[in-house]
Design a protein around this nucleic acid. Structure first.
Length: 754
DNA sequence: GAGTTTGAAACT
DNA sequence: CAGTTTCAAACTC
């Protein structure tokens, strides 16, 4: 196991790297019932830690037994929040079909006892927040999430007399596991324990709330890497730190849940099982992502089930790997104070697949946390097993081959949750065929015109609950940049077949909006590989580095912008931030207050390009120069005729490219269609008849007829002219018969095809 | 593809 | 902060 070395720690700002607040929470609830059943006491806090969370806490839990008994299409009940001084009751609906639970606060807390008596999972939900819990693929496998306070109000929920910062806690609880898989849990004692089936493991990460109002909260990142080293980065919008409880039955595979609290988060997927998530870009645009749940299937065997659970402002992504598709995940939480051991819970996989839990502990080397100075984001290097047998077997993880996964854990203050009216999946959404055991993300190919107006004002992470009975699809608003990544990831395409075919695709590097480019622009074209030769990709000359990305599939030489040179990279990051704290922030941001247009944060300094070439950062970002630009001879302003001309030309060129592309596509399709035809039958009425009817046999027969006709003329002593006429006449008859036969065959073919 | 131009980043 | 150098992308041929 790797831990952050003192050297690395020293490189990072204290306010970021100080993770002492992360507590190693003892697994005080080793059995299912302890976790499944929330305390009957309304004032009790359903968390294992002794830190009172009060009203800031959010908890959502689903009892294993209860979930197992959910066989109807839906279960409706009430969840009661009993966190501290605030009592919240929230009606909830559990729909096994979609495995989503939408919580809405209600004014009453009366359902506490009812829920308890009925064995109903209790969910403690913070006021104003909405939780969407998506089970991992099927009923009986609910994900229980408990969310602590958002961190935006540090200490707000503290009880009187408690001078210590509140300790929001994040917990991952996994109940049971597939028999062939064992969750691996690291403990503070540098131990690795293996969860037995049906054994409940509670991993809780405590985080002290920073005294600052901008309390960074880290959250959850889910990363799935299959056996081929492919990963499925999932962006995690701002989320409230919380608890995640994953329940698995003995026959069900353990769940892998990675949680993070990102802020300005960008996820970078890198081939080679390395994940780098950049926090350096602030999502400026949100895209609606519908989260679909698979149908219930208790017998799922090989499944890739990505589940995005939006929690507050964040989306939890839970993905279950398929066989041969190890899932690597990590739970990490950083704080600005007091590093304490952090446990991550890894869950097993299916049949040789690898579910693993990475448990970052300050004293243990299995997780390395690296904070990007000033970026409110840090990397977590996860040590994971790469051999299916090591983890998938009950023999324990001691023999597992370790691999590394890097995940960024953005630190973001939680944001208030927006209530959004449920929107059913509409036809505008991209159709995703959901297999019985698979869960897919459904992302509208178009902005869902019916609901877009509502979405445009939503904050990332907003959860749109599916309309009651409106199907099994909900929506979560996530930064658009994440959608691109999702679209690239098996989460979308995937989840698919049991063989996880989609995951076999090459994992591409994250596409981040570059310097203010719109999401569409950023996502419409892949990020260019850098060609750095002298900077080692550790200076801002390198676009990859500047965008907070690792180099991947680049053409650079002597590249240090990778995990192999983490020390150097961190130094470089620190150097850049020392030089310019805004170095990794998007250059294109909002204009002055009241201005809606984007503008370059520093302005350009162009002298020769007239700001009408891509040398100009403003022009490159497709924005006009502003008053802060120091350019000379600028022509990149609204009324500039040169700019308009260029724009028109660019538009025309783009149209031409699109047309050419469309023409090529059409032509290719037509060619393919022609090649695919086995019988060249002309489908158009009155068209040509199939030439294939003029076969060798037909020709021979025709010739025989003509010869026979010639002989007949000769035998009857016909003149040459008459003989020719007879032969030609016979030839005509032959042609007529050929045509007739062809036409008949055509008709027969048509009738068959129809 | 090589060479040139350009402007941001880095350096002094 | 200004001037210079370095650097890699954009651009031209």
């Amino acid at each position: 196991m790797d831990v952050v070395s003192p050297e690395l720690n020293s490189l990072l700002p204290d306010e970021i790297m100080d993770t002492e607040a992360i507590e190693d929470v003892p697994q005080s609830q080793p059995d299912e019932t302890a976790v499944q059943s929330e305390p009957s006491d309304d004032t009790s806090v359903p968390m294992e830690t002794d830190t009172p969370l009060a009203s800031e806490n959010l908890s959502l839990s689903l009892a294993t037994s209860t979930a197992a008994t959910i066989t109807t299409d839906s279960v409706t009940g009430t969840i009661v929040s009993t966190s501290g001084l605030q009592k919240l009751t929230a009606p909830f609906t559990i729909s096994p079909a979609n495995h989503q639970i939408i919580l809405n606060k209600v004014a009453s807390s009366q359902a506490t006892e009812a829920a308890k008596s009925a064995g109903t999972p209790q969910v403690i939900k913070q006021e104003g927040q909405k939780l969407l819990v998506t089970a991992i693929g099927k009923s009986g496998q609910p994900i229980v999430l408990q969310l602590p306070h958002t961190g935006s109000k540090p200490g707000a929920s503290q009880t009187s007399g408690d001078t210590k910062p509140q300790t929001p806690q994040f917990k991952v609880v996994t109940l049971g596991a597939r028999s062939e898989l064992k969750p691996v849990v690291g403990s503070a004692g540098n131990q690795v324990t293996t969860l037995q089936p049906q054994q409940l493991k509670t991993v809780q990460i405590a985080k002290k709330t920073p005294t600052s109002s901008a309390a960074p909260i880290k959250f959850i990142i889910t990363k799935t890497v299959n056996s081929k080293g492919l990963s499925s980065p999932t962006s995690v919008p701002p989320v409230i730190a919380g608890r995640v409880l994953t329940q698995t039955s003995p026959v069900m595979p353990p769940r892998t849940i990675t949680l993070s609290e990102p802020h300005n988060t960008s996820i970078q997927s890198i081939a080679g099982k390395k994940i780098a998530i950049s926090p350096l870009k602030t999502p400026s645009k949100v895209t609606v992502v519908s989260v679909a749940s698979p149908t219930s299937n208790a017998s799922q065997k090989s499944v890739a089930l990505p589940v995005n659970v939006a929690l507050g402002q964040q989306i939890l992504t839970v993905q279950q790997s398929t066989s041969g598709s190890p899932v690597k995940l990590a739970t990490s939480q950083t704080t600005t104070q007091n590093i304490k051991p952090v446990q991550s819970l890894a869950v097993g996989g299916v049949g040789g697949s690898q579910f693993k839990t990475i448990i970052p502990l300050a004293t243990q080397p299995n997780v390395q946390q690296i904070q990007v100075p000033g970026s409110k984001f840090h990397y977590v290097r996860l040590v994971t097993a790469t051999t299916a047998s090591s983890i998938g077997q009950a023999s324990g993880p001691s023999t597992m081959a370790l691999d590394l996964i890097w995940m960024s854990v953005p630190i973001v203050p939680a944001q208030p949750m927006k209530q959004v009216a449920p929107k059913p999946l509409t036809s505008a959404a991209q159709i995703v065929t959901t297999t019985q055991t698979q869960q897919r993300l459904i992302m509208p190919a178009t902005p869902l015109p019916q609901i877009q107006p509502n979405f445009t004002n939503l904050r990332p992470g907003t959860v749109l609950a599916p309309a009651p009975g409106g199907g099994n699809v909900g929506y979560a608003v996530v930064p658009a940049q994440y959608v691109t990544q999702l679209q690239q990831s098996p989460f979308v395409t995937l989840a698919g077949s049991s063989g996880f075919p989609a995951s076999t695709g090459v994992q591409t590097q994250a596409r981040l909006p570059l310097n203010g480019l719109s999401t569409a622009e950023a996502t419409s074209r892949p990020r260019k590989p850098c060609n750095c030769t002298k900077s080692q990709c550790l200076k801002l000359y390198c676009d990859c580095f500047a965008n907070g990305e690792f180099c991947n599939n680049c053409n650079c030489n002597n590249c240090f912008n990778n995990l192999e040179h983490e020390t150097e990279r961190l130094k470089a990051i620190k150097t850049c931030l020392d030089r310019n704290p805004e170095a990794f922030k998007p250059k294109i941001g909002k204009g002055k207050e009241g201005e809606s247009d984007r503008r370059h944060s520093k302005g350009c300094n162009c002298k020769r390009s007239g700001c009408l070439k891509n040398y100009c950062e403003c022009y490159e970002a497709k924005i006009m120069c502003s008053s802060i630009c120091k350019c000379i001879g600028c022509k990149n302003f609204e009324e500039s005729p040169e700019r308009k001309t260029l724009m028109h030309l660019a538009d025309a060129a783009e149209v031409r490219v699109q047309q050419q592309t469309a023409a090529k596509t059409k032509l290719s399709s037509q060619i393919s269609d022609l090649l695919m035809r086995t019988t060249p039958v002309n489908s158009s009425g009155g068209g040509r008849l199939p030439y294939t009817f003029v076969t060798k046999e037909v020709l021979e027969a025709t010739c025989e007829c003509l010869v026979e006709q010639a002989k007949k003329a000769e035998q009857t002593f016909q003149s040459q002219a008459e003989a020719e006429r007879m032969i030609l006449e016979e030839f005509g008859h032959c042609l007529m018969r050929i045509i007739s036969s062809a036409g008949k065959a055509k008709a027969d073919s048509a009738s068959i095809s129809c």
